[in-house]
Write a protein that binds this DNA or RNA. Structure first.
Length: 717
DNA sequence: CTAGGGTTAG
């Protein structure tokens, strides 16, 4: 996906927040009141707090009614521990934290994202905690490189480490979810933002969400979100409207297109942003009202037009012309844009302009002209990205111009921007296969597999495997099959068909080895039908006793593994029990909080922390997990207890409820959490948090990666 | 000048 550049700009832009999002004073940050002399006093404080919450509703409740431009009123400073925390203000980005920020930015610039993320994670526990701006920079970088699972893991990490997200953090998260087509997750977090965050969504928020919804055929919801935006008193954003209008065009609702345009016009008088005129033209064209479409055209680009036409706005108009048979007019406009282009002051052409023209000429079947436009990018210092290449290569492949396609392929760069991706390779592989050039196809496939970055999906693997089998290259096919098994979760059916092929080819030893692998894999197993196939093949060579032998062997191996596992489990449990016993002082946590001094409680917290870390940390990753929840603040130590040793929840339940607060609110969470929270919306105390934290994490990074890989690589037919 | 480097194509 060619998001990188625009996203980066979005980030840069939002990095400069509007002052009013951050205008609350830092002194507002809540101070936890944790130690009470007696349980009675704790209870009294609890009651007081509930009363107070009734009198002073949480900040978000007030926020709904205020004008967006107005500074949020600072209701009651410091005393409400359940109040949402405010994100860092720019003021904190000084001294060491600024230095840290710059070092991480340097790492990002050097494209050492792994180091940047790791460094940030470690700094959380240093005396120089990264600001939310630094975290956002890391998130944005991960997003730019489509590292979604790392993105989500990092995001989860910083939320659990109580880095308070700002609107940019939310926007990055929305973008990540939308990119992965997990629009509902994005909406869940939008709801969290609306309900809990001490700031409003920005126009960018609405652009991301509306586009995400439109792209995922959720026009109705997109329109609702737009209305929510208006209800907040924000002006109609032309970009949001354009997304919606394009969505309506796509679904054939041309009246809707015109309605939206008129709605915007009604609200702002005159629509000076040219970005909507292309979709407006499309609406008229769709109604067969060519004259009106061209009136819009003239309004937008005519001699004395007052409409501001950016490159993007022009591109939409170009597209509208091209898609409605007005290529000559498009060409005239394009030439004018080229002439008008005068950077840095006036930017009227960009990469998209060329792409739109390339698309238009391809649609007419004028491939050579399309290549001509493609080559002209350099004139205006534009360079094609992967998507631009892929589009043209696909068109060329589909029009018997394989030589030209391969030429372009060779041009594709080493850089992230224009390097070939899975789609590129599979285009070439498929085209070669269609022409029965199996060896060349295999060569392209091999080239893709050699890269460290590209991950062909199962569909791609099967494509080349089947083709190789069909042309009798069983060994080569088996080679790819083995790689597929190593890299991807492979379906039983794939194993079976490969197995059949091996049997048919009389490669019995390999077949038996594969049977062994299948038996050892709990997800696979061996159907009686496939057993039959193998037995038949063996019988032909007089080796029918080999199969039962292998089966028996594997059963034994499996039993051994199982026994070993059980033994380990027992050992581990008793170890854990010991530690649990050793950590028993933590059971007195609540008492200490009630009766003892804070210092004593802290001491227990300390013990507790290290013990739970020990108990839980079985791997590096889990150590990180634990460290994620190990907080700076004493109160969150209760979190560790509550999160990690469920039994303790009962013991310290009251205390937990009182002290675990909104910091967990912004947790990586899904609909359930929202629901859980709904129950206690008025006072949103920790009950919901505890519930929420016990809900198993829904996000599974690996699953996600595969999903993305699936959607991204797709199928090239 | 009080926005807008936003968008499209597999």
């Amino acid at each position: 996906m060619a998001l990188s550049k625009p996203l980066f700009f979005t980030y840069l832009k939002t990095l400069n927040p509007k002052p009013h999002y951050y205008s609350l004073s830092p002194s507002f940050i809540s101070i936890r009141l944790l130690s009470f002399a007696t349980p009675e006093e704790a209870a009294a404080e609890r009651r007081r707090r509930k009363r107070r919450l009734r009198i002073e509703p949480p900040l978000n409740a007030l926020r709904h009614h205020q004008q967006p431009q107005r500074r949020p009123q600072n209701p009651i400073p410091t005393s409400n521990p359940n109040a949402p925390k405010l994100p860092d203000s720019f003021g904190v980005l000084t001294g060491n934290r600024l230095k840290l920020h710059q070092r991480i930015l340097t790492l990002i610039r050097e494209n050492d994202l792994e180091e940047a993320a790791l460094y940030s994670r470690h700094s959380i526990y240093s005396n120089c905690k990264p600001t939310v701006f630094t975290c956002n920079a890391v998130l944005a970088a991960l997003l730019r490189q489509s590292k979604y699972s790392e993105f989500l893991s990092f995001h989860r990490f910083i939320t659990q480490a109580s880095v308070v997200p700002n609107v940019v953090t939310y926007n990055l998260l929305f973008t990540a979810y939308c990119d992965c087509k997990r629009i509902d997750s994005a909406l869940d977090h939008y709801k969290l933002l609306i309900n809990n965050a001490p700031f409003n969504p920005s126009p960018t928020t609405y652009r991301i969400l509306v586009k995400g919804l439109v792209d995922n055929a959720r026009l109705d919801r997109a329109l609702e979100i737009k209305d929510e935006m208006l209800a907040k008193g924000l002006l109609p954003d032309p970009i949001v409207y354009n997304h919606l209008m394009l969505g309506l065009v796509k679904s054939g609702d041309s009246d809707g297109v015109l309605d939206l345009y008129n709605e915007m016009k009604e609200k702002v008088g005159f629509v000076s942003d040219g970005v909507v005129y292309g979709s407006l033209m499309k609406g008229y064209f769709q109604k067969g009202m060519e004259k009106e479409a061209m009136d819009c055209y003239n309004e937008a680009v005519g001699e004395d037009s007052k409409v501001r036409m950016s490159a993007v706005a022009y591109n939409w108009v170009l597209d509208a012309l091209n898609k409605n048979g007005m290529f000559d007019e498009a060409k005239r406009l394009f030439d004018r844009m080229m002439e008008e282009h005068n950077p840095p002051g006036r930017m009227s052409v960009n990469l998209g302009s060329f792409n739109v023209m390339v698309n238009g000429y391809c649609a007419q079947g004028r491939l050579t002209d399309a290549i001509g436009f493609f080559k002209r990018m350099g004139e205006k210092n534009c360079s094609p990205d992967t998507l631009s290449y892929n589009y043209l290569i696909e068109q060329l492949c589909g029009n018997e111009m394989m030589a030209e396609a391969e030429e372009l392929f060779k041009e594709m760069g080493e850089d992230m921007i224009s390097s070939p991706d899975e789609f590129t390779y599979m285009l070439l592989v498929n085209t070669c296969l269609e022409k029965n050039r199996v060896d060349e196809a295999s060569k392209y496939f091999a080239k893709m597999a050699e890269t460290s970055t590209l991950r062909p999906n199962a569909f791609s693997f099967n494509k080349i495997i089947d083709a190789l089998i069909e042309s009798g290259k069983i060994d080569e096919a088996k080679g790819w099959f083995d790689q597929m098994v190593e890299k991807l979760k492979t379906e039983v059916a794939s194993y079976e068909s490969m197995l059949r092929v091996l049997c048919e080819a009389g490669k019995l030893d390999e077949a038996l080895k594969m049977v062994g692998d299948m038996l050892m894999n709990d997800d696979l197993g061996l159907s009686s039908e496939i057993k039959e196939v193998v037995t038949d093949a063996l019988r032909r060579e007089g080796r029918e006793e080999d199969l039962p032998r292998v089966i028996e062997e594997k059963e034994r191996e499996k039993a051994e593994i199982l026994a070993k596992k059980e033994a380990e489990e027992i050992a581990k449990n008793s170890l854990a029990d010991n530690k649990r016993v050793n950590s028993l002082p933590s059971m007195k946590f609540s008492e200490l909080l009630g009766k003892g001094t804070k210092d004593e409680a802290l001491e227990v917290g300390e013990v507790n922390k290290s013990v739970s870390a020990e108990v839980l940390a079985e791997s590096e990753a889990e150590t990180l997990e634990v460290r994620e929840v190990v907080p700076e603040s004493f109160s969150a130590e209760v979190d560790v207890t509550a999160n990690n040793i469920p039994e303790v929840i009962d013991e310290v339940g009251e205390v937990v409820n009182e002290s675990v607060s909104a910091e967990v609110l912004a947790n990586e969470s899904e609909a359930e959490i929202l629901e859980a929270r709904e129950v206690v919306t008025e006072t949103f105390t920790a009950e919901a948090d505890v519930i929420a934290n016990n809900i198993p994490e829904v996000i599974d990074g690996n699953v996600l990666v595969d999903e993305i890989q699936g959607t991204k690589t797709g199928t090239v037919e």
